[in-house]
């Protein structure tokens, strides 16, 4: 096992970089992080739309969420990678395709997190902001969303974990993420399949479990009793 790690650790970590595009664990992490960051603005927008009292706004978003959650990510990946180039004439790289699809999925899940957080915030917060004369947009920006995002942070970290796991699907369209690299290593070495895939599993475990623990600790910190917050009946 140790010589295996010794020989291939760099390949596992960064793929063929710099002699080729970036791959491996670093690609997995960068793609996931980038997807989540890029999805935030859209997720915020969709989340706010989701709780809008105007059904003309909230229903289409609810519909979009339902549709995105009803189809496998892999299917969307296939659509974008195989079908879209025929329509647009532009063939996107595996990494770009993966990123686009991840952003779509992440923004939908982030929208749900934002919407849930907004619904959970006491009504009085928005009311007092509006009572001071702040418009709805200003009230969202300065009072509602800062609190929503703070309370939603554990869920957002969990969404990052989901995204990391989702990048593995890039394997199927030939993206050189870490599972793909592991299989390449397995093909080269051939006789140590168990070791290779155990290392792969362990890598994901450390990364994802570590982040989940972070989310858990964040959640605990947020629930620390806040003194003197008297709730009126």
């Amino acid at each position: 096992m140790l010589e295996l790690i010794d020989t291939y650790w760099l390949y596992f970590l960064v793929g063929q970089y710099p002699q080729g595009p970036l791959g491996g664990l670093v690609l997995t992490i960068l793609l996931s992080g980038a997807a989540l960051v890029l999805a935030m603005p859209l997720g915020l927008l969709l989340g706010v739309a989701r709780v809008s009292p105007y059904r003309a706004i909230s229903l289409p978003v609810a519909g979009l969420v339902q549709v995105v959650r009803a189809v496998p990510l892999l299917l969307v990946l296939f659509w974008v990678y195989f079908f879209l180039p025929a329509v647009t004439g532009v063939k996107t790289s595996q990494a770009t395709t993966m990123l686009m699809v991840l952003v779509v999925f992440d923004s939908v899940y982030l929208a749900e997190i934002v919407a849930a957080g907004m619904r959970a915030l006491p009504k009085g917060q928005l009311e007092s902001a509006r009572s001071l004369g702040l418009g709805y947009g200003a009230a969202l920006r300065h009072v509602v969303l800062p609190q929503t995002l703070r309370h939603g942070l554990p869920s957002i970290v969990n969404q990052l974990v989901s995204t990391i796991k989702a990048t593995s699907l890039g394997y199927i369209i030939g993206l050189s993420e870490v599972s793909f690299i592991a299989t390449q290593i397995n093909t080269l070495v051939f006789t140590q399949a168990v070791e290779v895939y155990l290392i792969l599993a362990l890598t994901y475990f450390i990364l994802c479990f570590g982040l989940s623990r972070l989310a858990f600790l964040l959640e605990r910190r947020l629930q620390r009793p806040t003194a003197h917050l008297v709730q009126a009946s």
Binding site: S179, F205, C208, F209, S212
Partner: peptide, 18 residues
């Protein structure tokens, strides 16, 4: 935790190849 933190694709690879 052991199963949940590893993506399904990696599970499939393990059970089929390893």
């Amino acid at each position: 935790e052991a199963i949940r933190n590893v993506p399904l694709l990696a599970h499939l690879l393990f059970w089929y190849f390893a």
